[in-house]
Nucleic acid binder design. Structure first.
Length: 108
DNA sequence: AAGGTGACTAACA
DNA sequence: ATGTTAGCCACCT
């Protein structure tokens, strides 16, 4: 009934990302159960970006850089969405992971 | 239906 | 130290 277990898993993880935080593909993949499945995360987000009400903009590569190369999901859009959440994005589309990075477990 | 690509990361030589 | 290879699984042609 699910089209892809991993896709659904990733969606759940992405939805769990707190507002105003960002994380990496590798982290999402790991939380989804695939430590090396970073590519899938990107691919899945590409196809399900706005179909699942996913905060796809909070997913960036491990450098904190917006790696979207698709014109359908422009970096400018992602940058705008992040800034709208209060996340600072440099003019080179780099986010400070030390400050906004989220690594799965919220620090209670 | 089968093969190729992909918004990545890490390990190996 | 840098460069190259390997792996993950879903979507598209």
């Amino acid at each position: 009934m699910v089209e892809g277990n991993f896709k659904q898993r990733v969606i759940q993880v992405v939805k769990k990302i707190p507002y105003g935080k960002v994380t990496t593909y590798g982290t999402v993949a790991t939380l989804a159960g695939l430590p090396r499945g970073g590519r899938l995360v990107g691919g899945i987000l590409h196809f399900c970006s706005e179909d699942q009400d996913l905060p796809w903009q909070r997913i960036i590569n491990r450098f904190g850089y917006i790696s979207t190369k698709c014109l359908e999901h422009p970096k400018a859009l992602q940058k705008a969405l992040l800034e709208d959440e209060g996340v600072e994005v440099s003019k080179d589309f780099i986010v400070d992971l030390k400050k906004y990075g989220w690594w799965g477990e919220q620090n209670f």
